[in-house]
């Protein structure tokens, strides 16, 4: 994927088709929702923004507690329940 979608878009767009890649962007532990990221990094909004382009589609892995790109992947990947339907 040349462009990553965020969680909401992923859920909204998930439909019938070929398997999605096992990437952080599709993992249930990955949080890239801006409001939640602002909550996790409360000082970020003082002189930065999670709504800006520089963040790209990075998010927080709530399992590993790492801040990662959505195209990252690891052995602990678990697809989102919503996607499995």
């Amino acid at each position: 994927m040349s462009e990553r979608t965020d969680n909401r878009q992923f859920r909204a767009q998930a439909g019938a088709g070929a398997p999605a890649k096992a990437e952080c962007g599709n993992c249930q532990f990955f949080c890239d929702r801006p409001a939640e990221l602002e909550f996790e990094f409360p000082q970020l909004r003082t002189l930065g923004s999670v709504y800006g382009s520089v963040r790209s589609q990075d998010g927080l892995c709530q399992r590993l507690q790492r801040y990662l790109g959505s195209a990252s992947h690891c052995a602990a990947h678990e697809p989102r329940a919503q996607i499995l339907g």
Partner: peptide, 24 residues
């Protein structure tokens, strides 16, 4: 991942245009 994940639906090609209204 070391074990293959269960099949999941694929994302449609994401829209490049979405960023035009989704970023400050």
């Amino acid at each position: 991942s070391e074990t293959a994940p269960p099949p999941t639906p694929v994302l449609p090609a994401p829209s490049q245009w979405r960023e035009l209204i989704g970023r400050e």
